[in-house]
Amino acid sequence: DLGTGERLRAALQRRSIENTPWNRMQHVIFIPGLFHLKMACADALWRTFLQPSAAREDETSLMHDVGILRPRETGIYGSKPGFRRMHQLIIYDGICRRLDCWHVEARSRNPCHDTLESFAASEPSFEDLQDVANKMAQTYVANHQIRRMRKHESSHRDEQYENALLLNKYMLLYEELSYAMNHGDIGRVEACTIVWILIFKATGKHKYALQMTQFLCDIHFKFPEGLRLMMVESRAVRYHLLINPTGHGGKFRGVD
């Protein structure tokens, strides 16, 4: 975790004047616990969409969804819900929102599809589902066009729609990181981490942003060629960030 990393870096700094590599502790490499990274991501979403009082007033807000999914726990989610509650909320609410997007998109293509059940009963082909999914990703998830939307005057903006786009994007980022960790896809974990570093900085989690930035820079740019090859080819470090105790698919866990 962060505390261990800070203590290790302090020890390396104090030992930097020693004569031998062993005494300088050059053999010690800090590896962040990815489970703590996942917890930090959930906390960043809480700071963005639940902690501010202004973020709870809109009827399309995440807190409004909490009132539907967990009506007796709105106070807990507004104060300090913890990782497990936030993880379940992100997963379940993300599924509900995407199903609603499927409903809207299916009805826009065929007014006869008033429900998702009627859309499923029409037995759409796989190509049709791909086409709908691609359209949804362009329409209901924030992309580069969000900046153009925000440049308009307030009277011409749909702020509820903009917030919904951002919420869908951040939930998908969290689910992608969680999926990559569960399946041991360390390359995708690193790619997702780059985006989360920016979110950490925006939500005041500067220590996590600094730690993950330094770790990625060390692996891909700072370490000498031999150590870098060892990490990539022999999987000594990068591929030991996640372990699979059971050996079953989708059961990788972050080392803690």
Rank of each mutant, 00 (worst) to 15 (best):
L2I: 04
L2F: 02
T4R: 13
T4K: 15
G5L: 10
E6L: 02
R9D: 06
R9P: 02
R9Y: 09
R24F: 15
Q26I: 07
Q26S: 04
H27F: 12
I29E: 03
P32F: 10
L34V: 13
A40D: 02
A42Y: 06
A42R: 01
W46E: 05
T48W: 08
F49C: 01
L50A: 09
P52Q: 04
A55C: 03
R56D: 01
D58K: 05
D58M: 05
E59P: 10
T60Q: 13
M63I: 12
I68K: 13
I68P: 07
L69R: 14
P71L: 05
E73N: 00
T74I: 12
G75Y: 14
P81L: 08
R85G: 01
G94A: 08
G94L: 04
R97K: 11
R98I: 11
R98K: 12
R98Q: 13
R98F: 15
D100W: 14
C101A: 10
W102K: 09
H103I: 03
H103P: 03
V104T: 04
R107D: 00
S108L: 07
H113Q: 05
T115V: 12
L116T: 04
L116A: 07
E117Q: 09
S118M: 05
A120H: 07
A120L: 14
A120R: 10
S125I: 09
F126R: 11
E127H: 13
L129P: 04
V132W: 12
N134Q: 01
A137F: 14
Q138K: 11
Q138H: 08
T139K: 07
Y140I: 06
N143I: 11
Q145R: 06
I146M: 09
R148D: 08
R148A: 07
R148P: 00
M149C: 04
R150Q: 15
R150A: 15
E153L: 14
S155T: 06
R157M: 11
Q160P: 02
Y161R: 15
E162T: 03
L165R: 06
L165I: 04
L166I: 10
N168T: 00
K169T: 07
Y170T: 09
L173C: 12
L177Y: 11
S178Y: 05
Y179I: 04
Y179A: 06
A180S: 02
M181F: 15
I186L: 00
R188M: 04
R188S: 01
V189Y: 11
A191K: 01
C192T: 07
C192E: 10
T193Q: 08
F200Y: 07
K201V: 02
G204P: 02
K205V: 00
Y208L: 00
A209C: 01
L210E: 14
L210D: 11
Q214F: 11
Q214H: 11
Q214A: 09
F215Q: 07
H220R: 15
H220S: 15
F221C: 07
F221Y: 13
K222D: 08
F223I: 02
R228T: 12
R228K: 13
L229H: 03
R238I: 10
Y239N: 08
H240K: 15
L241K: 05
L242Q: 12
I243W: 12
I243P: 05
G247M: 04
G250V: 03
R253I: 10
G254T: 14
G254A: 14
